[in-house]
Design a protein around this nucleic acid. Sequence first.
DNA 1: TATGAATGAGTCTTCATTCAT
DNA 2: GATGAATGAAGACTCATTCAT
Lengths: 214, 214, 214, 214
Amino acid sequence: MARKADKGVVRGDPSRTRALILSAALKEFSENGLGGARIEAIAGNAGVNKQALYYHFGSKEKLYQATLEYGYESLRILDKEAISGTSGPAERMRALVGYFFDTMAGNRPVVWLVSEENRLRGRNLPLSPRIRDFTANFVSLIREIYDEGVEQKIFRPGIDSEQLWITIVSVSYLYFGNIYTLSYIINKNLDDPKMLKARRDHIVDIVLLGIERR
Amino acid sequence: MARKADKGVVRGDPSRTRALILSAALKEFSENGLGGARIEAIAGNAGVNKQALYYHFGSKEKLYQATLEYGYESLRILDKEAISGTSGPAERMRALVGYFFDTMAGNRPVVWLVSEENRLRGRNLPLSPRIRDFTANFVSLIREIYDEGVEQKIFRPGIDSEQLWITIVSVSYLYFGNIYTLSYIINKNLDDPKMLKARRDHIVDIVLLGIERR
Amino acid sequence: MARKADKGVVRGDPSRTRALILSAALKEFSENGLGGARIEAIAGNAGVNKQALYYHFGSKEKLYQATLEYGYESLRILDKEAISGTSGPAERMRALVGYFFDTMAGNRPVVWLVSEENRLRGRNLPLSPRIRDFTANFVSLIREIYDEGVEQKIFRPGIDSEQLWITIVSVSYLYFGNIYTLSYIINKNLDDPKMLKARRDHIVDIVLLGIERR
Amino acid sequence: MARKADKGVVRGDPSRTRALILSAALKEFSENGLGGARIEAIAGNAGVNKQALYYHFGSKEKLYQATLEYGYESLRILDKEAISGTSGPAERMRALVGYFFDTMAGNRPVVWLVSEENRLRGRNLPLSPRIRDFTANFVSLIREIYDEGVEQKIFRPGIDSEQLWITIVSVSYLYFGNIYTLSYIINKNLDDPKMLKARRDHIVDIVLLGIERR
DNA sequence: TATGAATGAGTCTTCATTCAT
DNA sequence: GATGAATGAAGACTCATTCAT
């Protein structure tokens, strides 16, 4: 119970210490990449000693791997409840596309962390098998809804659901991942609430119209 | 005329030296980011002395800026000839979407470099005013074609052409930028020629159906 | 108790480590100046790791500042005991002039370090407020003795005690600071004990005769 | 006659080029020392190409030696005319002390250059035999005047004229060489015209009273 | 002579990691 | 588990010097 002033560390609560470190690491790795991240900065922001990172995670690279898993986990894309209360494939698909957009909007650091992992050619992914679990369900869910829509003659058939998944991911993900270059080119602040709403509406429309039967 | 074996440097041809450095820098920065890139690696791959980078570009950061500009320039997205020989807005739009996909496919390093610049919050963009020139024309071209299509009652009205531009960029760009994580999640190699073709066809369809009138 | 052979570092005694570094730095900076000093040489002579200098002092420039303060402190010009046991202003002034000469003779590195600081236009002095404390007392002491001598009609009045201080400092300081050029010009080794004694006698005489009433 | 705009170099006038380089070198070496001086800075300030320094002087060290000689030469301490028009040893000695002060006041860079040479332990002096010529006469002149004064029973006998020379040099030289540290300690700007005059008066008095017979 | 370009040997500094308490 | 101190390897950058025209 002895709590240090100004610090969030509680002696004798290692899981809390781990959480503090992971949270700080997510920020640092996402902003600076694996190579650019500073162990000292992570320790400082987590309110722990540098050595604590080594005690709990072993090395910078292992901490990065744990952070990547932590990042994917925090997305909770698999949360089916997100689209509960909707009826019909079209409405569900709309909800899903919008939900993914909102998820990305609320987890910018993860967006950059995933970009970093791609630059590392995905070499850390196989080391965290849970990552596939966290994400694969989203693909299944899209397939489910799409198939249902095709059956009900609402969606046109012949679309590969994995392609559709990539498209749904793309139209939200890239917006946030490349928000600075996109904003610069058209000289508008894409982070403005109005722009965010416009984007959300646009992608829901485009995806739905792109797959609907006519 | 005296050319060193294995090296690309020719005494007295500084513009060639600069080009060699920029080419090597594009590869290094795109693979490792600004912080992770190694000056020594760039110099080695360019076949020049480490100090030459400082003589010609001043610092690592300035070289990065020059490389970013060089990368955008090499995309040549503005090349209108790409869609010459096409007739009608629909066909032109199809050609444009496909052309952008092909451009990304052929310029992977630039894709990563742009991701890196976003992680740096776009701080280097204002330093290279030419970058906007290289890219803004692409936005205009999309608007032109779209407006023409609306006029001809081929495309549905009410779509913001900048949103459309972002979408067109997204569905191609993210595929290459996140190819490793996407491949891992669905356990398929997205770099396979068949997959590339499938993706190209998919995005052309989705975009067109998403904007066409019905 | 585990002490490394040849090295002066004792684990767990950081103040000793700092002292070792400062001592080595005084030698190196005084002989080579700020720009010419080598971090590696200081670390080597102190028997510590190069990085230890950065851990304890932050940068070369900050180490230089700490060294400057350390140098002034080691002069201990303020030590009033130096002239204890003397009676009368004349005798005290003689003792003081001689004492300052001896101090300079025994602290050559500090003499050069102060020259270096002058070439740097004194830019580091304001950063170490203690330096003024170390030196200002000497000025006061001279004024005290001088005033006493004037009161007792031993010294002639009208001399500015700060000018007198500069003169006392000059006739000793420059001898050591410029000992190489002076020796060369008159082709004599001014570091010879006989020459040192001659100089000491000369300056005591000159200063006293220069201020005595007649 | 072809003169480059903005530059002081005249094609085909090597002695002028040498002079420009030496002048710039005096400034640079005096402000930054041998190690701290930058070849590029000297070339830039002289308005010549870096390579010109090598053409004319061979190396940085040799340029430093030439600059040292140039510096001593420019003092022209040997100029007897400085004290022409004076009558009697006392007046001549006063004139001489004041003249040396004025010389130092007007040649600050040389003062620092000589300090630098002392830090280099005078290793470059033997390489420039003319330096002794430039300075030795000043010692002789002091001896002459002093001996004359002793003969005329104006000065007290028994003073070593070389010691007297060092003292005369000291009370002026140190004032300028250490002007920053001295100013800081007493918190006054010693470069102020009033202070300069006060110092000049003080040293003339002190030296004369210090050697006069009573 | 003059100059832009090129080079290799350093030099400061950073950083992940480990040690000892 | 936690901490201050210590370390070795490496990286960005500088600089005197030289080459080729």
